[in-house]
Design a protein around this nucleic acid. Structure first.
Lengths: 274, 274
DNA sequence: CAGTGGTCTAGACCACACT
DNA sequence: GTGTGGTCTAGACCACTGC
């Protein structure tokens, strides 16, 4: 349990005498017509996000109670609640009644890889069992132009490339190429990846302090080329789903580019619209 | 603007003397251990949903103000607010500050077909221009087993099948087969579809009172068969994205089954994960 | 100006989890 | 029991819209 008063163990927050979060003087910053009005709860949300980025609370950790945070930021519980509500619907935090509010993590993610949108055509999601992963290669290299651009690097910067195959029930299903900024993933080796069990994104959290928060995917239908065909056990020209993913950490910083080829004869990419 | 007091023009709601929405006696219904506890705002949400289904407020309409609804349901404004908040995040309602809260609609849906997840690989979304639609056929027929099962009908029940092609810049891009329950779409003809401008789902709202609320899609990569190849202007065997959509109205009632084949050489299916 | 949604507060009470 | 999040209320005030 956290210490009773947050102020007794000051972290990076202003001292007790601090202001109630920029109260009462909206628009004093910009000289121009920028409306710049921001609700209190939004500002609180930003402060919490900052603590998340700074690693003050790590994935899986319980954050201070709403009352503690309200005292710390000098606002009412309701305002903190609204800030946390939004962070929770963004999947950055997880509320657990009676227990507390926790930093979301890719480990223990109920019963699924969090971002993997593949389901078997028939049977329940669990029927395909866990994915069997085999790393084909993991090497440090210079970023090709396109990869660099996506990751916000310069061409030639160090990146780590991982190539792997996922199989279900012994049958290869997904071939993935993954690019990671070398700077943030120093020390990632084939050995590390091979010994690890559990989602790759969970490994990123524990070993590199990188938490993937959201991602964008571009899906296409393509014909298998010779190399992919061999690795996936299909004939050349076979239709495959091409899934290109850009994953972001906090603050919309891109941290992973992933290109996957999916066999979809007995499974599909699932999506919900609303 | 709505009349000042809702009670003076009672609709289907209980008279003024009614109870405050099942207050103070939780669990009095079931004899068993069913916890059955439901927050007040959830009950309000259900009541609002019921009014939406019943057509008391139609797509595009403004619903009564929060204060009016609070009076009508005998709860505080805050409780109504929370109910509306959830309906708004579900895209069933749209809040407009200073104006009111409105029933969401597929017409005027800012600047896009609401459920079409296709974007050009390069350039901004608008660069592909509006889709050029050509209806190939529209016929009433008996539901095949699989279609009937998806739509919750019996095999052989009347359904309307629509086949159409969407093109961008004169180049065919999407071939769609659409199945609709005949019962709910009486009078839908090729003529109707051809003359109409605007999203098909908007037409469904105005002409048939059917509003699509959410949908689920299954995406696969397939090879074009002879027929599809001709209609899409590709060679047989060409990789296509197969997108199977089941769309639902209020209350999770399935109302449309749609199977699309997408050419994805210069565009992609876009998806956001979080 | 009045009417609408949006924010913020303060306090009471409920439901749940751990000890 | 104590502490946590969850619900509900009531009222004050702000921001935007349109008359």
């Amino acid at each position: 349990m956290p210490s009773s008063t947050e102020n007794l163990s000051p972290t990076s927050e202003p001292a007790p005498a601090a202001e109630p979060v920029g109260a009462g003087d909206p628009g004093a910053i910009g000289a121009q017509a920028a409306p710049a009005f921001s609700p209190l709860y939004q500002q609180i949300k930003t402060l919490i996000l900052r603590s998340l980025q700074a690693g003050e609370w790590k994935p899986g950790d319980m954050i201070p109670s709403e009352l503690d945070l309200a005292a710390r930021y000098r606002v009412s519980q309701g305002t903190v609640r609204k800030a946390i509500d939004e962070l929770a619907t963004d999947n950055l935090l997880v509320r657990r009644q009676g227990k507390g509010t926790f930093v979301a993590t890719h480990a223990e993610q109920h019963i699924q890889y969090r971002f993997l949108r593949v389901l078997p055509d028939i049977g329940d999601p669990a029927s395909q069992g866990p994915a069997e992963r085999s790393i084909i290669e993991c090497r440090r290299q210079r970023a090709p132009a396109e990869v660099a651009r996506s990751l916000g690097l310069r061409t030639g910067d160090a990146v780590i490339q991982v190539k792997r195959v996922l199989a279900f029930g012994g049958s290869p299903a997904i071939l993935e190429d993954i690019w990671l900024p070398g700077h943030s993933f120093k020390g990632l080796t084939l050995e590390t990846l091979s010994t690890d069990k559990g989602p790759m994104y969970a490994l990123f959290e524990t070993r590199f302090g990188v938490r993937m928060v959201r991602a964008v995917e571009k899906v296409k239908a393509v014909a298998a080329d010779a190399d992919n065909a061999v690795l996936l056990g299909v004939s050349s020209g076979h239709p495959l789903l091409s899934v290109e993913r850009l994953a972001y950490t906090y603050n919309d910083v891109p941290m992973e580019l992933r290109r996957g080829f999916y066999r979809t004869e007995t499974r599909h990419y699932h999506n919900e619209l609303s």
